[in-house]
C-alpha cells in the first residue's frame, strides 16, 4: 500500500512538474517575431472552405485572400512564402487557438470590433478587407430593402459577429426575426437555397460567391443596404510589438506597392533599374528599414514577388481575375475613390 502511494505521489509530482514547466514556457515574455524566426515556420489560422478567401483544394494546396496574407508574412519574415503551416479553424476555435499559441497569426476574415480588441487582448492588423453585412433574399419574396424583412426567418452563421449585428439592427429598428443558425457556411447556404429561411446574411462578396454557384443565380437578390460595416483584418495576440509593426507595415507596403506601380512581374526589374528614391527605399536598395524592423532588408521585394501588391492579391482571389468577380468597391486605392490608403514610406 505504502509503495503504491509513494509511486502515485511520484507520478503526480512528475505531472505537476510538467505543468509547471509548461507554465514557465507559456509565460516567457518575448516577441513572437523572434519566436517565428527561431522556428523557421509561421503558424497561420485560416479557413479551408471558402474559395477566394481561404480554401484547401483536393491537391492539398491552400489558396485565397486570407491564405495569401500569411504567405506574404512568411515571405517578409523568413524570406520564403512556403514556410507556413496552415490550420483550418471554426469561429468558436479561432480565438482560443490564438490565445493558446497554437497559431501566430489568425487570418480568417475576422471582423475588428472594439470589444474584441480591448477585452480579448488582441491586436488587429490592417484592415485589409473592407466590407459590410448584407442580405440575400429569394427574388420571389419581392423584398427590395432590409426594412421589408420584418418577421422573416434569417439564416445566420453561428458564432460570428454577424449574429450580433443582425440582432442589434433589428432591435434598433423595432423589427423582429427568427434566426436559423448554421454551424458552417455550406450548411447555411444549403438551408437558404432549400427555402428554410427567407434571407441569408453575410458579407456581400461571400453572398455573391454563393449566388454565382447556385442552380439559378437569377432567382436571388443581394440587397443594397448594408446593416453594418465590417473591418476584416488579420489578428495577433497583444504583446508582440515587433511582429505587429512588421505585419501592419507589410499590409501598408502592399498598398504602397500598388500606388508605386510595383507588381510581382516587375519588382526585380524595378529593384535593379529604378532611380526613384522611394522605390529604392521600398525595395531595400537604400536605407535599412527592413533591418531595423528585424526582417531582411529586401522584405517588401520578397512579399511582392510572392503574392503581388494589394491590387494583384485582391484581383487574383476575389476581383476581376477570379471566378467571383467582386468589384473593388471600398477596397480600391484612395486615389481611385476607395478607402485603401497607407502612410508614407519616408
Amino acid at each position: 500500500m505504502i509503495r503504491k502511494a509513494v509511486a502515485a505521489g511520484f507520478a503526480a509530482a512528475a505531472l505537476a512538474c510538467t505543468i509547471g514547466s509548461a507554465q514557465a514556457e507559456g509565460t516567457g515574455k518575448g516577441d513572437l517575431l523572434d519566436a517565428i524566426k527561431a522556428r523557421g515556420e509561421l503558424h497561420c489560422g485560416t479557413l479551408n472552405y471558402l474559395p477566394g478567401v481561404g480554401f484547401l483544394d483536393d491537391k492539398g494546396q491552400w489558396s485565397g485572400f486570407d491564405v495569401d496574407f500569411c504567405k506574404a508574412a512568411a515571405a517578409a519574415i523568413l524570406g520564403d512564402a512556403s514556410k507556413v503551416r496552415f490550420t483550418a479553424l471554426t469561429g468558436a476555435q479561432m480565438f482560443p487557438a490564438l490565445q493558446s499559441g497554437e497559431i501566430d497569426i489568425l487570418s480568417r476574415s475576422v471582423t475588428d470590433t472594439i470589444s474584441r480588441e480591448t477585452k480579448l487582448g488582441l491586436d488587429f492588423i490592417g484592415p485589409n478587407h473592407l466590407t459590410g453585412q448584407g442580405f440575400m433574399v429569394h427574388k420571389s419574396a419581392g423584398v427590395t430593402d432590409v426594412k421589408g424583412l420584418d418577421g422573416a426567418t434569417i439564416c445566420v452563421l453561428a458564432g460570428t459577429v454577424t449574429e450580433g449585428y443582425l440582432a442589434d439592427w433589428f432591435r434598433a429598428h423595432g423589427m423582429s426575426f427568427t434566426p436559423a443558425a448554421a454551424e458552417n457556411s455550406d450548411q447555411m447556404f444549403s438551408m437558404y437555397f432549400d427555402d428554410r429561411c427567407d434571407a441569408v446574411t453575410m458579407e456581400p462578396p461571400y453572398l455573391a460567391i454563393r449566388r454565382s454557384r447556385s442552380a439559378d443565380p437569377a432567382a436571388h437578390v443581394i440587397l443594397k443596404t448594408l446593416i453594418a460595416k465590417s473591418f476584416e483584418a488579420p489578428v495577433i495576440l497583444e504583446g508582440s510589438p515587433k511582429l505587429r509593426e512588421v505585419l501592419q507595415w507589410m499590409h501598408w507596403g502592399m498598398v504602397t506597392a500598388e500606388e508605386l506601380g510595383i507588381t510581382s512581374a516587375n519588382a526585380a526589374q524595378m529593384k535593379a533599374g529604378s532611380k526613384d528614391p522611394v522605390v529604392r527605399r521600398f525595395l531595400g536598395v537604400e536605407g535599412t528599414i527592413g533591418q531595423d524592423m528585424g526582417v531582411p532588408n529586401d522584405w517588401m521585394l520578397q512579399v511582392v514577388e510572392a503574392v503581388g501588391n494589394y491590387g494583384e492579391m485582391y484581383d487574383r482571389n476575389l476581383g476581376k481575375d477570379s471566378k467571383l468577380g467582386v468589384p473593388r468597391g471600398m477596397n480600391a486605392l484612395w486615389r481611385d475613390g476607395g478607402a485603401m490608403i497607407a502612410p508614407g514610406w519616408q
Partner: peptide, 30 residues
Amino acid sequence: VAQVLFLLVVAALAWAVVQTAAGNLDRLSV
C-alpha cells in the same frame, strides 16, 4: 495514509491547473 496522500496530490494538481490557467489568462490580458 495513501488515501490522504492521494487527495492531497489531486488537490495540488487542481491548484496547479487553476494557477497555470489564471497566470496565462492574465498574461494574455483576458
